[in-house]
Design a protein around this nucleic acid. Sequence first.
RNA 1: GCCCUCAUGGUCAAGCGGUCAAGACGUCGCCCUCUCACGGCGGAAUCUAGGGUUCGAUUCCCUAUGGGGGUACCA
Length: 479
Amino acid sequence: MTEVRTRFAPSPTGFMHIGNLRTGLYAYLFARKHNGTFILRIEDTDQERKVEGAEEMVYRTLETAGITYDEGPDKDGGYGPYVQTQRMNLYKEYAEKLVELGGAYYCFCDKERLESLADENGVHTYDKHCRNLSKEEVAKRLANGEPYVIRQKVPENTVSSYTDMVFGEISVDTADIEDGVLLKSDGLPTYNFANVVDDHLMAISHVIRGTEYLSSTPKYNLIYDAFGWERPKYMHLPPIMKDATRKLSKRFGDANFEDFIAKGYLPEAVVNYIALLGWCPKDNREKMTMDEMIEAFDTDGISHSSSIFDEAKMRWLNGEYLKAMTPDEFLKVAKPWIEKGLNGQDFDLAEIANLMQTRVDVLGDIPEKIAFLNEFGDYDLNMYVHQKMKVDLDVAKRAVKVAIDALEDFDDWADEAIKERIKLAAEEAGMKGGQVMFSMRVALSGAPVTPGGAIELAKVLGKEESLRRMRYSLELLTK
RNA sequence: GCCCUCAUGGUCAAGCGGUCAAGACGUCGCCCUCUCACGGCGGAAUCUAGGGUUCGAUUCCCUAUGGGGGUACCA
């Protein structure tokens, strides 16, 4: 059995959206699952679309996503170089070799002639004009320094087929395959050619990529055949869409991995979620670690149809990760966000983290949830009116007074103790505990909704600040 | 135009000839409850259409429709 070698070959032309990342993830999972080798190759031949810094972003993204490669630009495994622009001299040599082998030919047609081939739909198909030039003529024109390209010599009257690991048998009549350009007039390869040569030279056993290549793969296979090389196995992946008709787009920065991390998503949750977009493990599990995914990964579970990216579900999954953490772990990841929300105020971070853990799906939600901690002032008294709690302005005024009186000389500032104290005071005042606590909560926060109740807020705010706020609120209620 | 391909609730999806058509997200309702959340319980919601094949089609075949991809000296 030959060694499994897969590769992820992004081109540094922009952001890494989760569709790109997922392709890399699947190639990674497949390699790991089969104790194979996972390779990173940078396909930067399109210098015009190249984006500054995009290559570094690829490394960064893979690193934070926890996708580690065994061979790559900075990890030589003997099959380098791993950056396509550093391999440029190779392709011409192989293209010429292919001409000798009869799988390609020189073409001297100029742009004007090619343009004239367009049909009524504006689609132009090369008419194989130079396919049968004599060796002598080719040599002569080459010697004359005429510009040329090298084209693939696609066999005629046959069908090229292969079996895709997810889509099954794919067959294309060679009549539908153009004699495409392999080597451009500037001596550089087209993607079609570079890809085949690189995959072969890097001994890639399984080519894992998007379905945009599904129907052109027979064409690539013909090149392998012409060289006498062994064809790799193929696994094509359906696209991830932003809605029913549009794919995720790099250009518009859709669903960009790093953006999600910046918004407070956990990398492992994002990776987990995207693994599920287009793949379903046998047992239908949803929350999985990377190791569990490697273990469970199977081509059988890969979907044939495209799927729409749904951030709502990713939020939920992220929340599951957050809730599964220990308080310490959560505090560690939440700390910067809590500090951001506190805006310099000095409160107990662990207490706040405690309140936040079950209340946010994404860490970025924290600052707004705790904004009341540093924004306290005039507020709308109507928020005291609550029918179900049987609280109105009058009740609220009494309740806040009760709470103040109960806590003024109270020093055992712990959750349970404060609660008992308030309940007792409420009873003595002939009120329900809920009435007092509801009013107290509003008096403490000046907010209609808060993460946690009166007791929890009092605990976080501390005695002094709690009393200050309640006194202020009582004044408002008394006006 | 031609070629390849896909089609189960709003979304992700299980299903691979006989099921009351799983599960999850979201949504709605109830319980819990000092607001919000967490948690628990429950509801609504899906096989694109038409032909076949078959005792029986969501499942197999054909066609249509719709979506995606390809058809470049882009990847």
